[in-house]
Nucleic acid binder design. Sequence first.
DNA 1: ACAAAAGTGTTACACTTACACCCATGT
DNA 2: ACATGGGTGTAAGTGTAACACTTTTGT
Lengths: 233, 233
Amino acid sequence: MKIDFTPADFNVALATSVVVYGFSGDELLTLIAQKDGEPFHGAHILPTAIIRPDQAPENVVKSLLRDLTGRDDWPLEQLNSFANPYRNPSGRVVNIAYYCLVRLSDDLKASLEARGCRWIPVTKVPSMAYDHDEVMAYARERFKRRVKRRPVGFTLLPREFTLNEIQRLYECALGRKFDKRNFRRKVLKSQLLIETGNTVRSSAKAKRPSRLYMFDEKKYQTLTLKGYDIVYF
Amino acid sequence: MKIDFTPADFNVALATSVVVYGFSGDELLTLIAQKDGEPFHGAHILPTAIIRPDQAPENVVKSLLRDLTGRDDWPLEQLNSFANPYRNPSGRVVNIAYYCLVRLSDDLKASLEARGCRWIPVTKVPSMAYDHDEVMAYARERFKRRVKRRPVGFTLLPREFTLNEIQRLYECALGRKFDKRNFRRKVLKSQLLIETGNTVRSSAKAKRPSRLYMFDEKKYQTLTLKGYDIVYF
DNA sequence: ACAAAAGTGTTACACTTACACCCATGT
DNA sequence: ACATGGGTGTAAGTGTAACACTTTTGT
């Protein structure tokens, strides 16, 4: 079997786009940017960066994430590459897509607005330039599958959260309702939650405060080591 | 957000490698090629093809599969892209990997030998050139996950097969044993198998013949349409 | 005292697992 | 008749799903 590249084969450029998910407390949000400069000035796009021929894709995404969120240690996973010829007018570009989960916070939101990015509910993402619609749809599917098997709440929820919040997260992510009692039984049986002893009132109208929980990271490490095939829902 | 490519960015080449799985009846096999020409002449590699700048990756893989197996309509799925800089001495090459399931047959085996390819038990794959070890390991993980959720037997098994054969397939694929009675109950409950009425003797020594079954493709279509989240094992 | 959301148990049913012998057939 | 692999059932335990009321707290 022969694999002989000719100089003419080295005529492709690389880019990476990242689908970033966050949870507001009652909605699943995703990050959308707008394109500066022609072509497609002002079009909605996914946060995207060029991968120069001497760069490793993962490093480029991480630096993009650092730029957007101030950190690059969020859970990050490669999706498919989108590589149909001539998807980009400037020449042949292969887009190596990633998806990423972040923990929302107020200063995170502020820094993003400054960079021309916005958080949009996943139920309301606009149509985008290039083939970013396809990338977004693909990421959504991947995310749904991950939610069922991995405790995504570790990243998506604030450090302390209520059982109602985590239930709402799962309902948003999977697009269906759960029975409150069954949900709590299941999530508590996993032994991954620790009651912090703190409470919070979920709204001004709410009288009784909710108990706050946090994840037991040590227990999670132990469980993932012996095969992370934990089914959640 | 700016995305401006310069001519210097168009200096990457694309290749695709495919991990092909087949089932011999008592072993899971995978397809390995050998490299012709320097560098790495004679090294073990995955079946690989160059993607010219005007070609769609999926078409290239399909034509590679047609070349190897005479058909290109096997279940095919993109894996990650392997794109670390300088993984190939000729310059920067991005490898878009795929994995594929085929139904083994005698003439398929013959045509492959002619092309310098060999079927190797997955438990005995040798170390390979480039980063093909990494690709292979990644494919193996993906395959294990798929086996648990999708009826891979549709493709991997002959049109008619015995319950012992399908059990052996699952045991190979997942690397563990199943209880014969429980396995049969489960696989028959799925309603995806039809008894053909035919029988076969599994070996010369076997006296009693085994019953043959086939998959009910129509029922499978129906089930997949309403969410293919069928858990097998 | 009342409004609001938080929190809690039980029962029926389905699925999973462990386990050992008889059956059909060819020689 | 016997050797060989093919084929079968049951019972205990575990997990899932459906269901509605009481508790706590702030106003």
